[in-house]
Computed example of a mutant assay.
Amino acid sequence: MKYYVVDAFAEHVFEGNPAGVCILDKWLPDNTMQNIAAENNLSETAFAVKEGEHYRLRWFTPAAEIELCGHATLATAFVLASFYEPDAEQFTFHTLGGILIVLKKGNLFEMDFPSRLPEPFKLTNDMIEALGVTPIETYLSRDLMFVLENEDQVRQLSPDFSKLKDLPDGLGVSITAEGETFDFVSRSFFPKLNVNEDPVCGSAHCNLIPFWAGRLGKNELVARQLSKRGGTLYCLLEGDRVKMSGTAVLYAEAELQIDGTGQKNM
C-alpha cells in the first residue's frame, strides 16, 4: 500500500507539520488504520477513498480518530494533485467535520473550514499550573485557548504536558498572542491524543482566525505557528467559514507492508 509523508504549511522539508497520507481503493478496517497511525507516530495520518467525483477523508492520531484536521487535509490534497489527479484544481472531501473543499492555486492549497469562535471560559489554578504562566484571557471551543501577553511568551512557553493531559476541559490546548511580524502567533498541544505539540495545527485556526479577525478588525490575516518546526498560514474569514492557505513539500514515499487485516506480510 502506497504511503506518503508530506510537510504541510512548509516551503522546505523539516518545516511545517508532517502528515502521513494513504490513498485507498477501499476502506481498511478501523483498527488497521488506527494501528498504522500509531506505527507512524505522526500527529495525524490521513486515509482517503474516492467516492464518485469526491473523496471521503478520515484522520487518525496515534491514539484515536478525530473529526477535523487541517494540515493532513492539505497534505492529502497535495498528494492527490501530485500523484493522482495532476489536472484537478479542486478537491472535495466528505469528513466527520463536514464537507471540506481545497482549491489548488499555483503552489498554494486553500482550505475552506467551518469557523468556530471560542467562548470565554473560567481560568483555574490547574490551568495555570499546567501552562506555567497566567494567561490574560481564557476561551473554550473544541480546545482550550489561552491568550498570552506577547509573542515571546508564546515562543518560550514550556508547559507540563502531563498536567495539560489531566485538564478536564478541551480536547487540546492552544496558546496565542498578537504577533510582531505576523498578525498573530500560536502554538498547539494535544497530549490527550499522544501528541505533545502539534507543529502547525489547521483545526486550531478555526478558532484563532475568527477570534483575531474580530480583535484586530480585519478578515485577512497572516499567522505563524511558533513550534520548533514553524509554519505560516494565510487566513481569511468569510462569514461562518475560514479559509487557510499554505504550501506543502513531499518528504517521503513508501510502501507499507501490510494486508487488509493489518497483519504484516511474510
Rank of each mutant, 00 (worst) to 15 (best):
Y55L: 10
R56Q: 12
L57T: 12
L57G: 04
L57Q: 08
R58D: 11
W59H: 11
F60S: 12
A64H: 12
A64R: 15
I66F: 05
E67W: 11
L68V: 04
G70M: 06
G70R: 03
H71K: 13
A72C: 07
A72P: 03
A72V: 02
L74R: 01
T76N: 13
A77L: 05
A77I: 02
F78Q: 04
V79M: 06
V79S: 05
V79Q: 04
L80M: 08
S82Y: 14
S82Q: 14
S82M: 08
F83Y: 15
Y84C: 01
P86L: 10
A88W: 06
T92Y: 07
F93W: 13
H94F: 11
T95S: 09
G97A: 05
G98T: 12
G98E: 08
I99G: 07
L100I: 15
L100E: 03
I101P: 09
V102G: 01
V102M: 03
L103D: 15
L103W: 15
K104F: 13
G106K: 06
F109W: 13
F109G: 08
M111G: 09
R116G: 10
L117P: 09
L117K: 12
K122H: 09
I128L: 07
E129V: 04
E129A: 11
G132Q: 01
V133T: 14
V133C: 04
T134A: 10
I136A: 03
E137N: 11
Y139T: 00
L140T: 03
R142L: 09
D143H: 01
D143Q: 02
D143Y: 02
L144E: 00
L144H: 02
M145A: 05
L148N: 01
E149S: 08
E149R: 11
E149W: 03
N150G: 05
N150K: 06
D152V: 15
V154D: 03
V154R: 03
V154M: 08
Q156H: 13
L157T: 02
S158Y: 12
P159W: 04
D160G: 00
